[in-house]
Amino acid sequence: MAESRYRAEQGADIIVQPLDDVTLIYHRRSGQTHIVVSPVPEILAALAEGEADVPAILTRLARDYDLDDPGEARAGIAAHLDELVSLGLVTRI
């Protein structure tokens, strides 16, 4: 089965505001505020470079972060992407 590809909401539709303990995401189209913690902001930043599937996101993240277990990271990313899709911050294409 082909990997699903994902697209993040455009940068203009999202305001990302890191606080001292969590990160806030304001989504203009829905008017909703999301309170998230790592690795969600990192996944969104990786997707901001352009549409990608899970392996490509993993590659982008691996450039900047030390991912000790790629299998676990992969499953984690897929689960976070599902949540982001249901919030409308990411579209599955």
């Binding site: 203009r28 189209r29 829905s30 008017g31 409308g88 579209t91």
Partner: peptide, 16 residues
């Protein structure tokens, strides 16, 4: 304006 934005988002969600 806010009503409109919210309504369009609901429509978008229903379409999805």
């Amino acid at each position: 304006e806010r009503e409109k934005r919210q309504a369009l988002w609901e429509a978008d969600r229903a379409a999805a």
